[in-house]
Amino acid sequence: MTGKTLTLRLKVWRQDGPRAAGRFEEYDLPGISVDMSFLEMLDVLNERLNADGHEPVAFEHDCREGICGSCSLMINGMAHGPQKGTATCQLHMRHYRDGDEIVIEPWRSSAFPIIKDLVVDRAPFDAIIQAGGYISAPAGSAPDANSVPIPKEASDSAMDAAQCIGCGACVAACPNGAANLFTSAKLAHLNLLPQGQAERYSRTVAMVDTMEDHFGSCTNHGECEAACPKEISIDFIALMNRDYVKAQLFNRRLAGQRR
């Protein structure tokens, strides 16, 4: 609300399609209000490109309030940019200075191939959920919601994990391209609740194995936690590892049970 404007120099990754070669293109962008969001700044860039006869930059966005998880930009090498606990769509230009150069890239991970410009394909996240990221509770079969009291601590902790927006910043920030923070958050959400116990160990194995089919391995860098717009704790990775080990015991068929 200060009326102040910035002139920026942008270096933006442009790539025409999944199989096309990509390149950085540079744009000088004057007249950016400090009250704009980062994505509104890109809207302005796109309006100018369109006016000059150049195809606008493709980037993903939808809710613009940090909850849908669509936005996915590496900003000066940082997933979702410099502000802690913030998705790209919630980043505002008041954090930049006049004359700044901003490098904008898509998530870089072999599990997330580029579709166009800054848009990547995050389908492997859905594959992990489909493998077991649910509680089997067909509609109509549920008991009264208060029939199973859940200690507030357990419920709060499950909620801390369940806040994950599935954006993929954890993968993009990880030097190994691991998806352990995402997978562990989804697992912890369900494994911490009484309702999630019946499938706890089969779920853990199915999700972890699917994760490993697509993503790199975790070596405890902790970059994921630092990049996560919802500040999800890497403690959940420890919980996932513990459950994975326990699953080797619990998932054995009961004595006498045949295939």
Partner: peptide
């Protein structure tokens, strides 16, 4: 029924200290 269904699915609705 919706609240029952969602709770069974693992929706972490806010709770009191008594767990309800």
């Amino acid at each position: 029924d919706i609240i029952d269904q969602c709770t069974a699915q693992g929706v972490p609705f806010a709770r009191e200290y008594g767990g309800l």
